[in-house]
Computed example of a mutant assay.
Amino acid sequence: MAAGDSGEDKLIARLFGSVATHPGALGLKDDAALLAVPPGHELVLTKDALVAGVHFFPDDPPASIARKAMRVNLSDLAAKGADPLGVLLAFAIPPDMDAAALEAFAGGIGADATLYGAPLLGGDTVRTPGPFTVSITALGAVPTGQMVRRATARPGEAIVVSGTIGDSALGLALRLDPARSGFAGLDSASLDHLRDRYLHPRPRLALARPLRGRASAAMDVSDGLVGDLRKLLSASGVAGTIEASRVPFSAAARAAIAAEPALLETALTGGDDYEILAVMPDHEVSAFSTFATAAGIGVSVIGHTHEGEGLSVRDGDGAELTLARGSFSHF
């Protein structure tokens, strides 16, 4: 993403000239960015692409699309215990995306770059016959040897999750079928909450540092709580049991599930929560929760790991729940 004299360069300068103010961006006038890694730290890098019609609706507000693209990547950094250093942005512009939409998109990138301390460092833009596609590479830093991995959970530890689960999946279900019985009795504030959680993930960067040295393993919940926990357990070579009654739900989600119990599976497996899922010793939970509470984020213990393999999800009576869908998958 280099600004110069071509049509593309002028577009970049107009859209992102006031956004890419970090010295490492070099004013978007070079072919690469320059970034110093803090002494005693290692780089953590992650990349997610979002495609219209797959990850967001084509008629979603452009600023919301931008912020979702930023936040799903920053969520990965948070789960690794990393502090953001910056982002690289690439996007493909379809013919029906006008100047106003591009300005709004750039504004969303800039707003979250400032909000989360993740400056725009560079990237690329191209034309495409469609669909609109956004790809962000997020770069973070973590003290040497302290990245929280996925494959290092141990048996006999607490399984914890931040925030609330299922709001985004229910927001998507609401978007697809607003007449469903689970949503019929919800008030406008609850409906707005579910819609917003789908549009605007909340990366838990405030939990990045508290995870270091406390969590034996962690990941963010992108493809559904149950499916992502199964991935973590499998990668670590341990088993786990969680209780559905201990999974934290918002008031809106609880009301929807009470009205339509089938939505419990949607909430547990639907994805796009972007909460932190971690495994840690029981004696570390209190300190971790204290840091989270200070940041306005809830933390819930939903189960424990143990020797063996696989994941058991229990209901309030201790019976195992059978879930038809494990997690979201593109393939």
Rank of each mutant, 00 (worst) to 15 (best):
M1Y: 04
D5W: 05
S6G: 10
S18K: 12
V19S: 01
V19N: 01
G24Q: 02
G24S: 04
A25L: 07
D31W: 12
V37T: 10
H41P: 01
L45Q: 06
T46F: 05
A49D: 08
V51S: 03
G53R: 11
V54M: 09
D59L: 06
P61G: 00
A69V: 03
A69K: 01
L74G: 08
L77C: 11
A79N: 09
D83F: 01
D83P: 00
I93H: 02
P95W: 14
G107W: 03
D112I: 00
L115P: 00
G117V: 09
G122I: 07
T128C: 12
P129W: 08
I136W: 08
I136E: 09
L139N: 13
V142A: 07
T144A: 15
G171N: 02
A173C: 14
R175Y: 15
P178Q: 11
S181K: 15
F183R: 13
L186S: 07
D192M: 05
D196E: 15
Y198I: 00
R204E: 14
L205R: 09
V226A: 02
G227L: 02
D228M: 14
L229P: 05
R230Y: 06
S234F: 03
A235T: 01
V238E: 07
T241H: 02
F249K: 02
I257Q: 09
A259T: 15
E265T: 03
A267G: 03
G271N: 07
D272N: 14
V279W: 04
V279P: 01
I302F: 02
H304K: 15
H306F: 09
G308M: 12
G308S: 10
E309V: 08
G310Y: 10
G310R: 11
V313L: 01
D317N: 15
E320A: 15
G326N: 07
G326I: 02
F328V: 08
